[in-house]
Design a protein around this nucleic acid. Sequence first.
DNA 1: TGCAAACCATAAC
DNA 2: GTTATGGTTTGCA
Length: 196
Amino acid sequence: MDVYVRAIGDMTFGVVFKNEMVLGSNFGVNSENVLQSFNQMFPSEAPFKSTPKPTVFAEQVVSTIAGIYAGRGADGLPPLGLDRFPAYTQRVLRAVARIPVGFVASYGGVADAVGGGARAVGNAMANNCFAPLVPCHRVVSASLGLGGYGGGLRVKYEFLKREKRGYTEPTQVSTENGNLNVFPVEFVLKKYERKQ
DNA sequence: TGCAAACCATAAC
DNA sequence: GTTATGGTTTGCA
């Protein structure tokens, strides 16, 4: 298991990987921050140190993460090592990964698509080890509130602001299990700004 | 608005 | 097995 961490601009992005498979990812204000989150993800492997010589694969993954962070989205995801998670959690993560840039879904909406309940979806998000490859920041509360976020709600809000694409109508995307209702990120931003 | 009760998968005991 | 715990939701005052 290897780790690669790299600062781009004023943000640091990192990936835990093995055999061209992503086991975890995260971002933060500095490398210490990111490595620490990896230590929590894999306590038995801690403490991590960044691999001195990154593989091409790791470099690509970090670029993808940085692109998503910048609001540019990604045109494809690297293989994610979801096996170690319960089946339900995997379904949730896969469904969330389908939410396009510019749209958001509610916890309950995801639950409708994959089964289970809204709180269970929230739990899966809270344990998301693949931020922001699996865009949990695009899952919000049904009342158009922000919901929660591991990195802090401010970060979530800034994230969504960068993903504005000017959509005006709700739509839906298909997942393995069922259709997922999504709506323009502008809906959430508008409500958030009104509350200020 | 605000609060209480229902809801659902997990992890920890 | 059982319990506690959330990044929720809905209904009702």
